[in-house]
Design a protein around this nucleic acid. Structure first.
Lengths: 210, 210
DNA sequence: AATGATTTTAGACTGATCGTCTAATAAATG
DNA sequence: CATTTATTAGACGATCAGTCTAAAATCATT
C-alpha cells in the first residue's frame, strides 16, 4: 500500500502558505481509486476509504457532495492516470509501435502482480456493476474506453504505416477489439490470481494482427 | 419478469397432499440467479430476492445456511444451466462445428437483448467482485470456466479434424482465449446496452481461426 | 490587536437496509 | 395425544450513506 502517513490533519482553515492545500482531497481520491480498483463501488464503504486515507467523515462531505460525486471524480482520476500510463508506452519513440504495446502489457501485468492480482481495472469493475450504479456513470465510463481506444488506434495506425500490420486492417476496430478482450483478461487474471490470462489474450491479439 | 403469484405461504409444516410450494427453494434460486446475473453478489440484497420470489425471509434461512451458501448454489445452478445451453449448440450435428459456435453467440446476444442488456454473466459478475466475496467462490468460479472451456475446445477440435481450423492450432488455448475475451465482451455489451461488442469480439475470434 | 468571516475537521446521530437467528405455528408421525 | 419435523414471522444488532452542530485554525479588516 502507498501509506503516506502525513502529519495528522489539523482542524480549522489551513495556512495559505503551506501547499498542503489539496492534500486531503487528494488523499481521499487516492484511497478511493485504490479501493474501487480492488472491490468496486458497491462493496466499498465510505468508512473504509476514510480510514485508509486517515480522513474524518466530516471532511469527506466537505469535499464531495455524495458518494456518487466521489465515484465520478475517481473515474475521471483513474481514466486520466491510465491514459498517461498508456501514452508513456504508446508514444515511446525508442520502440517500434507494436513493441510499445507489448511494453504496456508487460507494465500492466507487473502492476497487477505488485498488488497480488487483487486489483483490477476501476473502469471494468464499475462497468460490470453498472446495473447497480448511478446511471450517470454509464456515459462517463464509456467515454474512458473511447479515449483509451483512440490512443491505441493511433499506435496501431503507426504500426500500419510501417508495415507491421496489413494495410487493409481497420485499426479503430482492432483497438476496440483489444479493449473488449483486455477487460476480460483482467477479470480472469484477478480471479485466478495469475498473469497468465493477460498473456494468453495478448498473444492471441498479436496473432490476429499478423 | 416471470411473476408466479401463488397463494401466500402458510406457516408450519406443509400438507403432504398439496405440494404447491414444493418449489420454494427453486423459486429462490431462480430469483437469485436473475438478480446475481444483473447486479452481482454484493449489490443484491436478500430482500430483493425474497420479494422477487414471493418468499418470506424466514424461509430463506430454512433452505440455505447463509447468503454465502445461497450464492454458491446459484453459481452451480447457473454453471449447469449455461453448460446445457452450450451443449445444445456445440453438439448440434445439423451444423458444421464453427457454425455451432456462431449459433451459440447469436443465442447469447438474443438472450442479452431480451433483457435489454441489463443482465450479463453471473460467473463474470462474481469473478469481477471476487475481492469482496467469500474466498471459497474462487475455485468454484474458476471450475465453471474450465468446464465451459473444455466444451468449446472439443467443438474446436472437431472443426480442426474437418479442416475448418489449421492443424497446428492449440484448440484448448483458443477456447481459453475465447472465454477470456467473451467475458470482456459481455461486460462491454452491458455497459453500452448493445450487442455490438459481442459481434466485434466474435468477428475477431473467427478471424483468428482463419 | 481585536474582531468577524471563512475554511476545515470532529464525530455523534439518523433512518434505511443488511444478514442472521429464535420462537411460534402447523402438519405429520406413532 | 404427544412428539417430531417442516416452515414462517418478525425481532435483532451491525453497518450503510448521509446529515448536522460545534469547535478550531487561519484570513481579512480595521
Amino acid at each position: 500500500m502507498e501509506m503516506v502517513n502525513l502529519p495528522p490533519r489539523k482542524r480549522g482553515r489551513p495556512p495559505k502558505q503551506a501547499p498542503n492545500h489539496a492534500g486531503t482531497r487528494e488523499a481521499l481520491l487516492r484511497a478511493g481509486v485504490a479501493a474501487l480498483t480492488r472491490k468496486g463501488f458497491v462493496a466499498t464503504g465510505l468508512d473504509e476509504i476514510l480510514s485508509l486515507a486517515n480522513v474524518p467523515k466530516g471532511s469527506f462531505y466537505h469535499y464531495f457532495a455524495s458518494k456518487e460525486a466521489f465515484g465520478s471524480a475517481a473515474i475521471a482520476r483513474y481514466g486520466a492516470y491510465f491514459a498517461a500510463k498508456l501514452d508513456r508506452h504508446l508514444l515511446d519513440e525508442s520502440l517500434a509501435p507494436l513493441e510499445r504495446l507489448r511494453a504496456f502489457i508487460a507494465d500492466a501485468e507487473a502492476g497487477m502482480r505488485r498488488h497480488e492480482f487483487r486489483r483490477g481495472c476501476l473502469v471494468g469493475n464499475l462497468g460490470q456493476e453498472m446495473s447497480a450504479l448511478p446511471e450517470a456513470y454509464r456515459d462517463q465510463l464509456d467515454a474512458v474506453f473511447v479515449d483509451w481506444e483512440a490512443r491505441l488506434a493511433a499506435c496501431l495506425r503507426l504500426a500500419q504505416t510501417r508495415g507491421e500490420i496489413g494495410a487493409g486492417r481497420d485499426c479503430a476496430r482492432l483497438a476496440h477489439f483489444f479493449w473488449i478482450g483486455w477487460e476480460g483478461a483482467v477479470l480472469r487474471a484477478k480471479l485466478r490470481r495469475s498473469g497468465q490470462p493477460l498473456r494468453v489474450f495478448a498473444e492471441g491479439f498479436f496473432a490476429l494482427l499478423a
